Simulated assay, not measured.
Amino acid sequence: MELFEKLYDEDEKVKVRFVGFTTEVARYDFGIVYTNLFFGKPLVICMQTGRSTLLDPLDLEDIEYLQSIFKIEDRKQAVELADFFAEELPGLAYEPDYY
């Protein structure tokens, strides 16, 4: 009896970028994994906390989401982080047609 139903098992050569930067009050270290999986959204990993999420430009408009996922208390810091990612993350190359 098989306990798991495999949904996907993909191998892919991807581009990974590591970037560290500081603001007036915080230091950030991120790994950004550019993949064709997950509808083309890059996987963004905070190297300090291990928190990660898939991000695209539309996600960056939700500052509260960034604050929640990366545990940032100061809204200004989250806005600065969104501004950084807005310059660094590509737009979506794939728009799914669910229906």
Rank of each mutant, 00 (worst) to 15 (best):
A26L: 08
V25D: 15
G50E: 06
D9L: 13
E10P: 05
P42H: 03
Y8H: 06
A26M: 09
Y65F: 14
D83N: 14
G31Y: 01
K76D: 15
Y94G: 07
T22M: 09
L3E: 14
F21E: 14
S68M: 11
P57N: 11
Y65K: 02
K15L: 12
F30I: 08
A78F: 05
P90R: 03
Q77N: 15
C46I: 03
F21C: 08
T35D: 04
E2P: 15
E88K: 08
L89Y: 04
Y28F: 15
E2S: 13
M47C: 12
E61Y: 05
C46P: 02
Q67W: 09
V33N: 02
Y28S: 03
F39Y: 11
L89A: 06
D9Y: 06
E24A: 13
E10G: 02
D83V: 09
Y65H: 05
K76F: 13
Y28H: 11
F21Q: 10
G40T: 07
R17P: 01
R27P: 04
S52G: 05
E2A: 12
E64R: 04
V14G: 01
L3N: 13
Y99V: 10
L58N: 14
I69V: 14
P57G: 06
C46A: 13
C46R: 09
T35F: 00
D62I: 01
F30Q: 03
R75D: 09
T35N: 03
A78R: 02
K41S: 01
Q48I: 06
E80M: 13
M1I: 10
D59E: 09
P57E: 08
V16W: 00
D59I: 03
D29T: 07
E5P: 01
D59L: 00
D9E: 14
A78N: 05
Q48F: 08
A93E: 14
Y8P: 03
T35Q: 06
V44S: 02
D74P: 02
E88Q: 10
F30G: 00
E73G: 12
G40C: 06
T23F: 03
Y8W: 04
